[in-house]
Design a binder for these strands. Structure first.
Lengths: 189, 189
DNA sequence: ATTGCTTTTTGTCAAATGGCAAATGATTTC
DNA sequence: GAAATCATTTGCCATTTGACAAAAAGCAAT
């Protein structure tokens, strides 16, 4: 819980009562490797914060290939905003790729906090738009780079991820086949 | 100006006084083809709304290649949020690729509106986070598709853009060389 | 140690794409 | 209209990457 509070306070200040209120709505949840936090076709009804472990956001393209869109590791929020905000079905899966410990807020509690705590909306805005910007900044440059450069960028961005997850997820994140990625790794080292 | 008001009201409601106040801060600006709306290395101090024309956001990667990150056409906001919000230097250029007509708010006026108009912050947040989500959703799938599919997606997303701008910009947007794109177009038709 | 299972590496071949340079086409300028 | 300039197409060849298949390595249960 401490991690979450610290994270939040980077984006704005809150008094102890407000922090206590937020904490009181938070539930700690464990998710086993390969289990889903939320699924395509369903409405996202929870906001999560990763305490421990790695999750990935993925979907199936129109060739039926499973594409990993991004990884979310420790101390980051995980929520399909489009689905959560608009109560529409999500188009992606959020899946634990290691055993995970999350802090979770229900939609109801989350909205209640938004109504109750002055300044909380602004903090949430800052958090979510920073996260969105980060997604753009991380994913977008991959389009214009060759496969080796993509992998090197991946290593920079997620230094603590590569050894904890299957190669195939990294490959699909980078838009490269698993075998190509394997060759690339050979050439690098 | 009507376009801007309509656009805003999609995201929340405002009374006539509030609308008048917002309108009073808006300036109509014309930008010639190839001129810059904002530049890398400078702080973005304006929020723009494209009434007519197309702009692109671009940057130089570490090989010195100019990369077009996205196109922004009619009835969309244009602002480097990272730079504008945090008053840090922008890392990209925003350039008109046709003659453009924009509605522009100065940073000062924009912040004043945020302080003055109740509910404006929420509307702005909805607008900006939708735009950010759209950027992710448009750019990200390109990573995992082949060049032809990328081009077809581009045509879907920006149906009114392709005939109004140089091929080279599209190529850099898609992460493909100009000659490859030329051949791809030949094969499609 | 052996077995069965999954993940990763590697090889071969074919297709896609890039780099370069020349040719063609389009647009502007005088 | 001719020249100059810029954008696009095309040809040629080198390189990268994908598809497929087989081998090797890692891991867990026995």
């Amino acid at each position: 819980m401490k991690e979450l509070i610290e994270y939040i306070l980077q984006f704005g200040s809150l008094n102890p009562q407000q922090i206590a209120l937020i904490s009181s709505k938070a539930t700690e949840v464990e998710i086993k490797k390969d289990a889903y936090f939320s699924e395509a076709g369903k409405i996202a009804r929870e906001v999560g914060f990763v305490i421990d472990g790695i999750v990935r956001v993925c979907y199936y393209n129109n060739k039926g290939e499973e594409i990993t869109k991004y990884f979310i590791d420790e101390n980051n929020l995980v929520v399909d905003l489009e689905s959560f905000d608009n109560e529409i079905c999500s188009s992606s899966y959020v899946q634990a790729i290691t055993d995970c410990k999350l802090i979770v807020f229900s939609r109801k509690d989350w909205l209640e906090l938004l109504d109750t705590i002055l300044g909380w909306e602004t903090i949430v805005h800052k958090i979510t738009s920073k996260a969105l910007r980060q997604k753009v900044e991380r994913r977008s440059p991959l389009v214009s780079e060759d496969a080796t450069t993509r992998y090197l960028k991946f290593l920079e961005i997620y230094p603590n991820v590569v050894n904890r997850i299957p190669l195939s997820y990294v490959a699909s994140y980078l838009g490269v086949t698993q075998s190509s990625l394997s060759r690339i790794r050979k050439n690098i080292s």
